[in-house]
Structures are given as structure tokens and as C-alpha cells.
Amino acid sequence: MDFSISLTINGVERRITFDDPRVTLLDLFRERLHLTGTKKGCDRGQCGACTILVDGRRINSCLALALSHDGASITTIEGLAKDDQLHPVQAAFIENDGFQCGFCTPGQIMSAVGLIAEGHAGTDPERVREGMSGNLCRCGAYAGITKAVIEAQKSAGEARTGEAA
């Protein structure tokens, strides 16, 4: 039996047909749409490598069935940079060396974007660490990750102040 849903993925609306109700958003992207930026580290919601934004909120895509997300608007790591301009979080990850092997990185970055949007971590390192603790990094790039999130948070704050003024 075929299922059909519509998803807006990185700003592009797509009608997606697939034949299996067991497909998660993670496997849909990786194996069927060949959007492989999002990573699978555990497939059971324990590592955060698969973090994406669904309607602006960060979720573990390995725990999300594609079928139950008809109509959702999704951002993955591939959709973050705009017109070859890196998102401030991406730029901050490079500048602060917020990764080593890079496997957890798409999830870290999406989680950071989500955290900044949630707005309760601010630039307090303790809160940022707490807010990013759903994303494991076995390489231990946490110091750089924390710095990157704070730096991106600051530039987001400045951008907002700029807009308001």
C-alpha cells in the first residue's frame, strides 16, 4: 500500500509517496530522498545526531514517523545556509572548532538553532551546556560547541536589536 504526504523540506514543498508505514523521517531523508546530511547515531532517541527542525522545533527524526508528519515544514542541515551564506551557527561552529569527526555536527547545529529559537539559554554557558546535552559528541568537542552556540546567540541577539532599531 502506498502512502502519500506533503512536506515542506528546506523551503520546498514536496509530495512524497512511499510504501511503508514504518519509515521514519530520518530514514526517509537518508535512504529515500538521499538527503544524507542528517545522521543516524542510535536510531532510538538517545544521541541527537538526527536532530532536525519540524515547524521550527528541534526533534529527533529517528523517533518521528514520516506518515504522522503530513503537512509539516522541516529544516535539515542542508537547508540552513542561504544563498551560499552560512547560517551564523554554522559559521560559529567552524570558527570555534565545534567538532572533530563531524558526525554529530549536523545534529548539534540543528539543536543549537532550535535552542536559540527557544530563547531560554541565552549566553549563559551552564544553560547552553544543559540545553545542548541531548546531543552526544563522542569526540568531546563540547568546549567548542558551547562557545559556538554562545557566539551565534550573541550575533542573533545583535541582529534582533538591529532589526528593532
Binding site: L35, T36, G37, T38, T76, I77, E78, L80, A81, L86, Q90, A91, F93, I94, E95, D97, F99, G102, T105, P106, I109
Partner: peptide, 11 residues
């Protein structure tokens, strides 16, 4: 900074 950084932060 890492030369592979761009690839790693963009997926």
C-alpha cells in the same frame, strides 16, 4: 580552521 569544516557544517 578545519579545511573540511564547510562540508561538515553543511551536511
Amino acid at each position: 580552521t578545519r579545511r573540511d569544516g564547510l562540508l561538515k557544517v553543511t551536511g
